[in-house]
Amino acid sequence: MRRGRDAEHPGGGRESAGAGRPAPDEAREARSRAIPRRRGEGLAGDSPRAQASRLIGVEERNPCSRPEPKVTFVVATRNRERYLPGCLESIERQAYPNRELIVVDDASTDGTREVVSSVSPSAILLSSPKQLGIGGAYELGLARAGGEIVVILDDDAYLTDTGSTHLIARRFTEVDDLGILCFHVEAPDGTTRAKENVRRDKQVPQREEEIAYFLSGACAIRLSALRRIGGFPLDFEVAATELDVSFRLLESGYRILFAPYIRVVHLDVATEEKETRREFYLVRNNIWLAARYLPFPFAQVRTLLWLGWGMISGLRSGNLAQALRGGADGLARWAELRGEGWTVSSATIARMNALSGRTWY
Rank of each mutant, 00 (worst) to 15 (best):
L153V: 01
P85D: 02
Y96M: 06
L88H: 05
V150D: 05
I134G: 01
V104N: 10
L132D: 00
R171S: 12
D156N: 01
D110E: 12
R99F: 00
A107F: 04
T112L: 09
D154G: 14
S120L: 00
L153P: 05
A143S: 12
G147W: 06
T77A: 12
R113K: 12
N98Y: 07
K130E: 15
T162N: 09
G147V: 04
V75M: 12
R82V: 11
S164G: 02
D110T: 06
I91C: 04
S118T: 08
E81C: 14
R66K: 08
I168T: 01
E114K: 10
I168A: 01
L159A: 11
V75N: 11
V75F: 14
D105L: 00
D155V: 10
S117T: 03
L142G: 10
F73Y: 15
L132A: 02
A137R: 01
A107N: 12
E148T: 11
S90P: 12
F73T: 13
I102E: 05
I152G: 06
V116H: 03
N79Q: 09
T112K: 03
G133T: 07
E114T: 13
I91N: 03
S120Y: 00
V104A: 10
V103C: 05
P63V: 06
R78Y: 13
S127I: 11
R170S: 12
T77W: 06
R93L: 07
G86M: 13
E89V: 09
K130L: 13
